[in-house]
């Protein structure tokens, strides 16, 4: 599948994959593909950052290589590790064959067959369907040393394994990096990337997304859910609901056979939208009742 040629093509590509982008995101993504730069997506949790990479991989028919970041992520789990049991076995076999002291043994056991490839290394390899989409998810969860290492990988698209030498990608992967901003990622890394902030969607776009993702909800429930969620986002809650919560809520309401919002159902399902007890306590009662009224009037 060819890369999109214009911003409109990029937007259309995502839309066909069930992702409704705004113009800014389509522009950033188009330029990232065109200029072969990593795309750095930042925004609150549940905004659809990871989804961009998934949809992109599906629609371009490329492999998706995902590196989930966490504190203490190191080279052994991000790039490569040697398969020690197999190496040990090779040494035993060599000894049994009387080659235990052979000088060539060191070379033999550091063979690519004994290498366990982790996501970053896999992303640099040649893939049948073309360069893969490399998703580096929640980069803010790692620590600074890993960021520094990543900086090196992303500038040259190569990694060095002391025993084997340097492995370089023939075709660099399409890189999407996401961050929930639980920590500031260093400027040096951001400088290599194109940057896009994923904000909460406007009501109009949220309705379009809901329609694309949960079409069985119908226009009425769709409009009411979006109206209520948008009201919640204006309340200065500890954790306002993201797009993921909107979609979950629509699914939950459908599972309860709700065709429109009413106070009782809303109160019963608030936990799908709000994840902190303080927030739920604040919304339950009057605020929820007013929100339901507004939602019913909205459509």
């Amino acid at each position: 599948m060819l890369l999109p040629n214009t911003i409109d093509d990029t937007a259309e590509l995502l839309r066909r994959g069930g992702y409704v982008p705004d113009r800014a995101l389509a522009t950033s993504l188009f330029l990232a593909l065109k200029l072969k730069r990593p795309l750095f997506l930042e925004g609150e949790a549940g905004g659809g950052k990871t989804e961009v990479a998934k949809v992109l991989a599906t629609m371009l028919a490329r492999d998706l290589v995902r590196l989930q970041c966490y504190e203490g992520l190191d080279i052994a789990s991000a790039v490569y590790e040697w398969n020690y049991p197999r190496q040990m076995m090779a040494i035993r076999l060599a000894e049994a064959a009387g080659r235990g002291q052979d000088a060539a043994l060191g070379k033999d056991i550091y063979n690519i067959d004994y290498l366990i490839k982790r996501p970053l290394l896999r992303a640099l390899e040649a893939h049948k369907s073309g360069p893969p989409v490399l998703l580096i998810d929640e980069l803010d969860r790692t620590d600074e040393p890993f960021e520094a290492f990543l900086l090196e990988v992303l500038s040259d698209y190569q990694v060095t394994i002391p025993e084997l030498g340097t492995l370089k990608a023939i075709d660099p992967p399409i890189v999407i990096i996401t961050s929930n901003r639980t920590r500031e990622v260093h400027d040096a890394l951001k400088r290599r990337c194109l940057y896009h902030w994923i904000d909460y969607p406007s009501a109009e776009r949220e309705r379009a997304i809901l329609k694309a993702r949960v079409p069985e909800a119908g226009d009425k429930l769709n409009a009411q859910v979006v109206s209520f969620v948008q009201m919640l986002r204006g309340l200065e809650l500890f954790k306002p609901p993201g797009l993921a919560e909107t979609l979950d809520w629509a699914h939950a309401l459908l599972a309860l056979d709700a065709r429109e919002l009413d106070r009782e159902t809303v109160e019963a399902t608030l936990g799908v939208v709000l994840k902190y007890q303080d927030d739920i306590a604040r919304v339950r009662g009057d605020v929820a009742a007013r929100g339901v009224e507004q939602a019913q009037a909205a459509q």
Binding site: T6, I7, R23, A24, T27, S28, F30, L31, A32, K34, L35, E42, R181, E184, D187, K190, R191, L194, Y195, H196, W197
Partner: peptide
Amino acid sequence: EALQAIDIGRRADVFHALHTVFVERH
């Protein structure tokens, strides 16, 4: 490079393109 890749007749696209290149923090 980014501006060469897009239609610079559209002001909004120029804005988004320069934004994604120049801005590094929200």
